[in-house]
Write a protein that binds this DNA or RNA. Structure first.
Length: 908
RNA sequence: GCCGGGGUGGCGAAAUGGCAAACGCAGGUGACUUAAAAUCACCCGAGGUAACCCCUCCUGCGGGUUCGAGUCCCGCCCUCGGCACCA
């Protein structure tokens, strides 16, 4: 052994040094010239940018950011021109609520939070091009968010509509569905009513088909695509019109026609009622005078229930309208009902009730005593027209089958019958084949302060100056877009950020801002603001050319960089953010602004990082432990099953838990008591949140990065364990020692272990390269650990071997990489050094060890040279000392030789 | 209820249908040290034998395909996410 320097690696000092170097040298600045040129291939590697919350970075953030950073550094080393930016999704409710509570301007809160987030990200050594940093609240950015809104408006994709919202007068605010419980606000328990409010709405439904079809262009997780498909919810069916009986309506009115949508036109002859949603526009007109009171009461009750409440209701209810419609084909009378299981905003807000063949209709008909008529049977009735349906079973028959009791259509299959019925309806102008979507237009207005103002003016009728108290009337039917040159429209300064008693929001009180005079006429600004989604819908475009004062980004640069090559972010954005951004992108594509139909090529969701595993024991009021198996966990609070006594969960030290034979964790001193042992989502209230700051302080940023990547597959949900960081911390130290002690003059060819060493190096290069490409960072790090061990075991490490280790290591542990490179005598930065390459021939050794299996069990091993024939291998195997006894007295039935892999003998 | 992901040592995990448990944590033994930490070396799924060799069993459960299954097929159980009256 030669004398080795044992100088411990000091992450704090080393990391600060290289972070300062990168900042001073702008090591990671993306060159625009190269971006446009075709000389280098491009890689646009993007993280979902964060909302800079007051709580600071959470260990979940750096997981995705580290993954993209590794890929970014790897691609740069491979000669790609890399765009790897970061910014802030900085509008949002928390800053506004903080403002309401404390009077601090949201801008101040936001700026402080951004500064903290930026500090934390820089401490992790991410290779962002910070010169491209953007903030969705800056006027430069808002200007183009508003510009895109104007494009949507010009194209008729932004319109105003009265939308029912959950208005709480007491709190002076509009609540989300989740915030309403039993008609009362979750906070304070004040009454909530569904009131129609004028809102801006984006016509995303116009793009439903393209949003669905173009999913195939993207390399996305199948589950995410499926979620978007389900969200869009395209279904083919039939619109059917039922004429309403004349006596239902007052004299002299147009005869009303009721339209319903169904995916099962084959069941049309099984209709026994028609149900309308409580929100149906013609409900009053269709109600018989005798039922008006009952119907009005039902509708009023429904108005006080939020959508969620309504959907949670188990039993169905409804009230008859006392009027009837005519079946379009049979001419039979069908009663009309109002029922809140019918959704007002899907289809036409009315359904044809076919209790025999739809579960919901079955439930409704059963509760309300409506008849059930079977028109589809499971077995082929033999084509005999007029064959009769079997008697009423206990449940609806929802599968397709053969039609019966359906007039001329009896005997047809559901498919053929449905088509024939649709055709018959079409011939009578009583219906047609159509497509419906679950996707609804996007309510794009919030009654908030801290958001992008909507750049719209409305004419005002007034006798004086509306800013000083003159009466006025705003004509919302005449929206006037600001011109692009008037952008950005910035927020007025306010001191009171509360929404107030006017649903129009806080901005309505900023009279000087709200009312403007032009050519002697008064106009009022829109006082709603955009939702938080707006900024994140196009930020990936702005990163391409973040300081462009003329437009979103230079068209040539957009062409050079789009689409995003790798997009990493949480699965919680699988639907909304990713759908909204795709929608805007497609609008901009139609507008000729962006050159691609889709924004994000490859998408990956990093998994959630849970808190440390917690052990807990249930105890009753006397403090006696209760086995988890004896606890009813559904009870609130959890209770002992035997007597219903409440039990509480008490935290235990891991040392007090042990695992029994059945695989349950039990008390170490009482194995009859099964424990609760699991990891929970990190949350402030649980007190299991780990901050990157404390980890960096204790172990260094490189160890933090390595640990998060080593924990398991990027996409898996994984429990945090601070103790496990030791493993990667040791790797960092060992790798550093290798660089420190490398023999500058020793060549690999002169090593006694040259063959094994060459193979180890080439194999590791191959493994790490392939694993980074496939985002398998955990196994790449494992390979680096193996190589480190190999080098550490050498009497002397050749310079070239240490260089390879440094190069392979630096995307994962960039500060260590730079430090090793410096130790090896090179000037910075290691980022500018080409990625090492491997020779496949050098990854394999000449001799191989092959197991010999007999009836599926390994009985011996052969050391062979490559490429031997089966007969040769078999002969060698049979003579093996460990194999021969197993063949004795048996006959060899079969031999399977997987070349250079395994030999299997089957004997009997 | 429906749609997805997952279930492998004490723990995090690895394994193109081909030697299950690589790599790491924890634990154990030893070296170094006045001592501890750090570092280094070795051991480390369960059972039988128990000193070693060796043998048997083992990837949630039950079947199947195959010379061979953690991996593929069928049927269950558990768990984590998402959606949920969409006619």
């Amino acid at each position: 052994m030669t004398e080795r320097t044992q100088q411990r690696y000091e992450p704090q000092a080393v990391e600060a040094k290289w972070q300062a170097y990168w900042e001073a040298e702008q090591t990671f600045r993306t060159g625009d010239d190269t971006a446009a040129g075709a000389a280098k291939p491009k890689a646009y590697i993007l993280d979902m940018f964060p909302y800079p919350s007051g709580a600071g970075l959470h260990v979940g953030h750096p997981e995705g950011y580290t993954a993209t950073d590794i890929v970014a550094r790897f691609r740069r080393a491979q000669g790609y021109c890399v765009l790897h930016p970061m910014g802030w999704d900085a509008f949002g409710l928390p800053a506004e609520q903080h403002a309401i509570r404390t009077g601090t301007h949201p801008r101040a809160t936001t700026a402080a939070n951004i500064a903290n987030f930026r500090r934390q990200l820089k401490a992790l050594g991410f290779s962002y091009d910070w010169s491209r940093e953007i903030d969705t609240t800056s006027p430069d950015y808002v200007r183009f968010t508003q510009w895109i809104f104007l494009k949507l408006f010009e194209r008729g994709l932004a319109y105003q509509q009265e939308v029912p919202v959950n208005w709480c007068a007491e709190l002076g605010t509009v609540l989300a569905n989740e915030e309403v419980k039993d008609g009362l606000s979750e906070v304070g328990g004040y009454p909530v009513t569904r009131v129609p409010l004028r809102q801006w709405v984006l016509r995303i439904t116009a793009y439903a088909d393209r949003l669905l079809d173009d999913l195939s262009l993207n390399e996305w997780p199948a589950s995410t695509k499926q979620m978007q498909e389900a969200w869009i919810g395209r279904s083919r069916g039939c619109e059917i019109r039922f004429a309403v009986d004349a006596q239902a309506q007052g004299a002299g009115k147009e005869p009303l026609v009721l339209e319903v949508f169904t995916t099962r036109p084959d069941t049309l002859f099984g209709v026994t009622y028609i149900a309308l949603a409580p929100e149906h526009p013609h409900l009053t007109a269709l109600t018989a005078p005798g039922q008006a009171g009952a119907v009005a009461a039902y509708v009023e009750a429904a108005r006080h229930r939020s959508d969620l409440d309504r959907k949670a209701a188990k039993t169905k209810s409804g009230v008859p309208l006392g009027t009837f419609a005519r079946h379009p084909l049979s001419g039979e009378q069908v009663p009309l009902w109002v029922a809140d299981y019918v959704l007002g905003d899907y289809g036409s807000g009315a359904v044809m009730g076919v209790p025999a063949h739809d579960e919901r209709d079955f439930d409704f008909a059963t509760t309300c005593g409506l008849p059930i008529k079977h028109v589809v049977v499971r077995e082929d009735p033999g084509g005999a027209a007029g064959a009769s349906a079997s008697t009423s079973p206990q449940a609806a028959v929802c599968e397709p089958g053969w039609l019966v009791d359906s007039g001329a259509f009896s005997g047809l299959t559901s498919d053929a019958g449905g088509e024939a019925i649709a055709a018959a309806l079409e011939a009578k102008s009583a219906g047609q084949v159509t497509v419906q979507y679950k996707l609804r237009d996007w309510v794009f207005a919030r009654q908030r302060y801290w958001g992008e103002p909507i750049p719209i003016l409305f004419p005002v009728e007034t006798a004086g100056d509306p800013r000083t108290g003159a009466d006025y009337r705003i004509d919302y039917s005449q929206p006037i877009a600001l011109s692009a040159s008037e952008l950005p429209l910035t927020l007025p300064e306010l001191e009171d950020f509360r929404p107030g008693s006017d649903p129009a929001g806080a901005l309505a009180r900023a009279l000087d801002w709200r009312f403007v005079q032009r050519d002697g006429r008064w106009f009022a600004r829109e006082t709603n603001t955009m939702p938080q989604w707006a900024g994140s819908c196009w930020y990936y475009l702005r990163f391409i050319d973040p300081r462009n004062p003329e437009c979103i980004a230079d068209p040539a640069k957009l062409k050079a960089w789009l689409p995003v090559d790798l997009y990493v972010g949480g699965a919680e954005h699988a639907v909304l953010h990713l759908l909204y951004a795709r929608f805007w992108h497609k609008v901009l594509f139609d507008e000729g602004v962006v050159p691609t139909p889709e924004p994000f090529g490859k998408l990956v969701h990093q998994g959630m990082i849970l808190g440390e595993v917690e052990y807990g024991v249930y105890r009753d009021a006397q403090g006696q432990p209760v086995s988890r198996a004896d606890v009813d966990l559904r009870a609130e609070p959890p209770a002992r099953i035997a007597d219903g006594a409440a039990v509480t969960l008490e935290k235990l030290d891991a040392a007090e838990a042990t695992k029994n034979k059945r695989g349950d964790f039990v008390l170490a001193n009482d194995d009859g008591v099964v424990l609760e042992a699991r990891a929970y989502k990190m949350s402030k209230s649980r007190g299991n949140v780990v901050s990157p700051d404390e980890i960096i302080e204790a172990f260094g940023a490189d160890s933090m990065r390595l640990y998060e990547m080593f924990m398991g597959p990027l996409e898996a949900t994984k429990p945090w364990n601070t103790q496990n960081i030791q493993g990667v911390r040791r790797l960092v130290d060992r790798a550093y020692q290798i660089a420190l002690n490398a023999d500058r003059t020793l060549r690999i060819e002169d090593c006694p272990e040259r063959e094994a060493l060459t193979q180890a190096l080439h194999r590791t290069i191959r493994k790490v390269t392939e694993d980074i490409e496939a985002l398998r960072f955990n196994t790449a790090i494992s390979a680096l650990m193996v190589l480190t061990q190999t080098l550490q075991d050498l009497a002397a490490v050749p310079q070239a071997a240490a260089e390879t280790l440094a190069l392979l290591m630096h995307p994962f542990a960039p500060h260590l990489g730079e430090e090793m490179w410096a130790c090896l005598g090179y000037p910075p930065s290691i980022q500018s050094v080409p990625w090492p390459t491997f020779d496949p021939a050098l990854c394999e050794s000449d001799t191989i060890e092959v197991p010999v299996q007999i009836n599926g069990k390994v009985r011996g091993r052969l050391t062979l040279s490559r490429g031997l024939a089966e007969a040769e291998v078999l002969a060698q195997a049979q003579s093996l000392e460990s194999v021969a006894p197993h063949l004795e007295g048996k006959s060899l039935v079969k031999t399977v030789w997987v070349p250079d892999k395994i030999l299997t003998l089957v004997v009997r």
